[in-house]
């Protein structure tokens, strides 16, 4: 297991539809993503527990890109990863953002 934490500058402007969302299931090749509204002076706190070691720089870039694309700020993003492939990670993150912002039910 590897535990990663990132503190990343956030974006202003998104009004969340809910206080928190949870998508995905922790299984082999799958992951769960939880986004919670948090008072972080606009910043984003990211915590990742992953069964795959050695991908901290990749995770950081993936999460930075994700937060920028969805213009998220004042959020806590928490991930439990069971070794998901990059495509699954991207889909789950987008799914979580869509539910958090009310873009998709």
């Amino acid at each position: 297991m590897e535990h990663l934490e990132f503190d990343i500058a956030g974006w202003a402007g998104v009004n969340p539809a809910r206080d928190h969302v949870l998508v995905g299931v922790v299984g082999s090749g799958n992951l769960e993503v939880m986004i919670e509204r948090a008072e972080l002076a606009g910043r984003c706190a990211v915590a990742i527990d992953t069964s795959i070691h050695g991908f901290a720089p990749t995770w950081r870039r993936v999460v930075e890109d994700f937060l920028a694309r969805h213009r998220l700020g004042d959020v806590r993003v928490s991930i439990n990863d069971g070794g998901a492939t990059p495509a699954v990670v991207g889909l789950r993150l987008d799914q979580a953002a869509a539910e958090y912002t009310g873009g998709v039910r």
Partner: peptide
């Protein structure tokens, strides 16, 4: 709820990922 993070106290010691619920 998952935001309370009541996760397994046993799985981390075995190197197995937890789930928030």
């Amino acid at each position: 709820p998952p935001t309370m993070r009541l996760t397994s106290p046993h799985l981390p010691a075995l190197g197995v990922p937890v789930a928030f619920d």
